[in-house]
Computed example of a mutant assay.
Amino acid sequence: MQTKHFNNQNEDIKAAAELLRAGEVVAFPTETVYGLGADATNEEAVKKVFAAKGRPADNPLIMTVGDEEQIEPFVMVTNQARKLMADFWPGSLTMILPIKEGMVSMLVTGGLQTAAIRMPKNEPTRELIRQAGFPIVGPSANTSGKPSPTTAAHVKHDMAGKIAGILDDGPTQIGVESTVIDLTASVPTILRTGAVTEEELSRSLGQTVVDGTSKKALAADQTPKAPGMKYRHYAPDKDVLVFDPLDWFDLQEKLGPADAVMADEALLSELKNKEQPSWSLGESLEQASENLFAGLRYFDDDKTVDTIYVQSMPEIGLGKAYNNRLAKASGGRLFQGPASE
């Protein structure tokens, strides 16, 4: 299959929407990462997404909409959901809501009676969905388990020949996937951290929101309510180790020519070996999250690199989402320097 490249112009968006209506798969941009789109109401189209990604069938897919009206036929919109829509949509928040009986394919929900719904901020994608005329599924547009794509080039790397098209709107801005909140639990519960924080959600709802991301992994026979809860995610083929900035100088003593380091500008300015393979995470938490997956992908493709050392960030705001993705990418492996022992 030839994968067509579309720009964010009206005629290209129209052509991409026609492919979606024909039951094909088209990758699309959001402010977080690129997604893999197909008609959420067409089971044969949804099956193509699972096939392209190599995704387990019990891993639910997010339904992505162009406007709020598109969700009404499919899920029960609660008062809590309406509050969050008003405050965070369009944007990087996914809500888990009860489905209306018989209205959402079990392929999309992973067999559950709940569905994950999101309306991204990216306008070309919202126009694409509006022109298609139906919600689309929207998992990240990468091979299942690998680092998420933040550019159209990343999508092409993983999906060329597997999908019908890629809508290109340049690099994403946030760089880590949306926050997922479960509004079907007894207390609203965060199942995946992202740019919308626990504190912001609590203020919006006027009640405490629980962070459920630290719960133990699901058993083999359990179905996750949201992506990223059960299976290996965000991981390159290379070994990844997380280091604390306090261990920066000790780490440098152990770095060899086959080691790469990903760190912020302040640390890289103190890198002793200027020939050391390195990737800048920028000067802020926002830039670090934007650059994380791109750096992991870059070194994963570098045949001279065996191990990638990546800096952790303060556990505040977007740093929680950054550290969550990094922990999954590394399998929880840490560089143990004297300062962290």
Score class of each variant (00 low, 15 high):
residue 8 N to D: 14
residue 24 E to W: 03
residue 234 Y to C: 01
residue 89 W to C: 04
residue 136 I to L: 15
residue 162 K to H: 10
residue 120 P to A: 05
residue 169 D to N: 14
residue 99 I to M: 01
residue 59 N to Q: 08
residue 63 M to E: 01
residue 99 I to L: 06
residue 66 G to I: 03
residue 218 L to F: 11
residue 287 Q to R: 08
residue 172 T to E: 10
residue 13 I to M: 07
residue 258 A to Q: 14
residue 237 D to L: 12
residue 103 M to E: 15
residue 281 L to F: 07
residue 283 E to T: 14
residue 277 P to N: 12
residue 102 G to D: 03
residue 313 M to V: 05
residue 55 R to F: 08
residue 281 L to P: 01
residue 341 E to T: 15
residue 209 V to Q: 00
residue 177 E to S: 13
residue 279 W to L: 08
residue 12 D to I: 05
residue 35 G to N: 04
residue 211 D to E: 06
residue 254 K to T: 15
residue 132 A to T: 14
residue 6 F to Q: 07
residue 138 G to F: 10
residue 130 R to I: 13
residue 171 P to Y: 04
residue 126 R to D: 12
residue 154 H to F: 08
residue 96 I to S: 02
residue 8 N to C: 09
residue 186 S to Y: 08
residue 285 L to K: 02
residue 109 T to S: 05
residue 138 G to W: 06
residue 161 G to P: 04
residue 95 M to P: 03
residue 33 V to Y: 03
residue 152 A to M: 09
residue 68 E to P: 01
residue 255 L to M: 10
residue 231 Y to D: 13
residue 179 T to F: 05
residue 106 M to L: 11
residue 129 I to F: 02
residue 260 A to H: 00
residue 274 K to R: 13
residue 63 M to A: 07
residue 118 R to T: 03
residue 333 R to W: 05
residue 27 A to G: 13
residue 159 M to H: 06
residue 129 I to Y: 00
residue 68 E to L: 12
residue 172 T to D: 10
residue 141 A to W: 07
residue 288 A to Y: 02
residue 317 G to E: 12
residue 301 D to L: 12
residue 250 D to Y: 13
residue 133 G to L: 10
residue 326 L to H: 06
residue 259 D to N: 10
residue 218 L to T: 07
residue 282 G to S: 09
residue 109 T to D: 00
residue 214 S to I: 11
residue 69 E to Q: 15
residue 310 V to W: 05
residue 208 T to M: 13
residue 93 L to H: 02
residue 319 G to T: 08
residue 149 P to M: 07
residue 69 E to N: 15
residue 277 P to T: 09
residue 28 F to Q: 02
residue 117 I to D: 01
residue 224 P to K: 05
